[in-house]
Design a binder for these strands. Structure first.
Length: 113
DNA sequence: ACTGTGACACTGG
DNA sequence: ACCAGTGCCACAG
């Protein structure tokens, strides 16, 4: 096995993969993505991944509470893209109760029921 | 090994 | 409800 492992760290891949799972018409938050990817306290890394990895549905990732955490100009574009997917806002925030994507819980504890 | 980075989350005033 | 400060954690140089 060559040591030329994949350049992107496991964390980056996991986060990127998680972001790709957010379906069209839904959104998530940095914290939620990090958690779903298996790295609960790494919300800030989600931001890093969005920066470095192209071709991700970046507009579907929001700050806590559904707030857009981009500078004004980009915020405008993000909002536009989201609305184009049918997502609705309430003031400056996305109507989270209705549009937040719920990731399938990782069943580290099988048969948890 | 150390320091700076990053599109954050959370708490308190 | 808004803003500022503080905590966070792994990556990149």
């Amino acid at each position: 096995m060559p040591r030329s492992a994949a350049s992107p760290s496991a964390l980056s891949k996991a986060i990127a993969a998680t972001i790709r799972k957010i379906p069209r018409g839904k959104v998530s938050t940095y914290g939620a993505v990090a958690k779903a990817a298996g790295y609960p306290r790494c919300a800030r890394h989600v931001a890093k991944v969005l920066q470095s990895v192209p071709d991700l549905p970046w507009q579907r990732v929001l700050g806590a509470g559904g707030r857009i955490s981009l500078s004004a100009e980009y915020a405008l574009e993000q909002r536009f893209l989201l609305q184009a997917e049918g997502i609705r806002f309430r003031g400056k925030r996305v109507d989270m109760p209705n549009f937040e994507h719920i990731f399938s819980p990782r069943r580290s504890v099988p048969r948890a029921r």
